[in-house]
Design a binder for these strands. Structure first.
Lengths: 138, 138
DNA sequence: ATATATTTTGCAACAATGTTGCATTGTTAT
DNA sequence: ATAACAATGCAACATTGTTGCAAAATATAT
């Protein structure tokens, strides 16, 4: 697992640093998505707040993680599947937010159905945000 | 139009105040969704920042407007259709965010397709966020 | 292995966004 | 008109996110 993290960083031409390794491992350990605050909590005072912001930003740019649109408008991040392309990734996601425990799941195996848009609208990316009760809370 | 605003406030057992009328009229005038900053800009120094926050909060609670999950994680609000029920509203929305001009549209007439969730997951609300180019920018 | 170039980090300062308590003002009901 | 109630403005504060720059860590070339 640790090797996989280093490989992932190398593949994306990123310097192998403690903060990047640790933050990335938190994503591998987590079953759901993580918010900035979650990572800050897990890391303690190990890294500066700014470092976490910049690391997350870098990971998003490289397509290692992606941001999740949420109904409560908190910023959350989740690991991308290998197929996620960097930058303007045209890939669709289904996310599930539990109203009870707040956990956010990235449902990779569910495909987003295409919808018919009004004339002149061109869809580049589709994100479906489903909220309700997760399998642990129902 | 102005009558409709007063009626809407009365129907929701809210006091008829200048700020509520003005803020609500901004939503009726806007073709897209509004962020807190948009309203602050449109209102100038007429109302306190806190009043705008509280007004938006009240409108959301009453089901007059709803928050929109966005890919860039900025908080946006849009008018609910009449069918929107207050509180835990089980109603689905399709929103379109233009990557070019940033305008967010609430596509009321497009229905959100139901997706199959893993066992134990119960969907209460579905929000589909489509991003790309709107009819003015394509 | 060492020196150099490059990248990343931490710190400080700042900007933006959102929240809370309380006295004052405005709205509603009697 | 008056009393009861609700909403507003102000001030102070908490949280979240951003930027510039010197110091430290990492990568590259010798």
């Amino acid at each position: 697992m640790h090797e996989r993290i280093v490989d992932l960083l190398k593949k994306n031409h990123l310097s192998i640093t403690e903060s990047r390794k640790k933050i990335l491992s938190h994503f591998f350990d987590a079953n759901g998505a993580l918010a900035h605050a979650d990572i800050e909590q897990k890391s303690g005072t190990e890294f500066d707040r700014v470092t976490i912001y910049r690391t997350l930003q870098t990971f998003v740019e490289k397509g290692i993680i992606h941001t999740i649109p949420t109904t409560d408008n908190s910023v959350r991040y989740a690991l991308c599947k290998d197929e996620c392309s960097a930058g303007h990734h045209h890939d669709d996601h289904v996310h599930f937010m539990c109203d009870e425990c707040g956990t956010t799941y990235c449902l990779d195996h569910v495909t987003v159905p295409k919808v018919a848009l009004p004339d002149g609208f061109k869809a580049m990316q589709n994100d479906l945000v489903v909220s309700g009760l997760c399998n642990k809370c129902s």
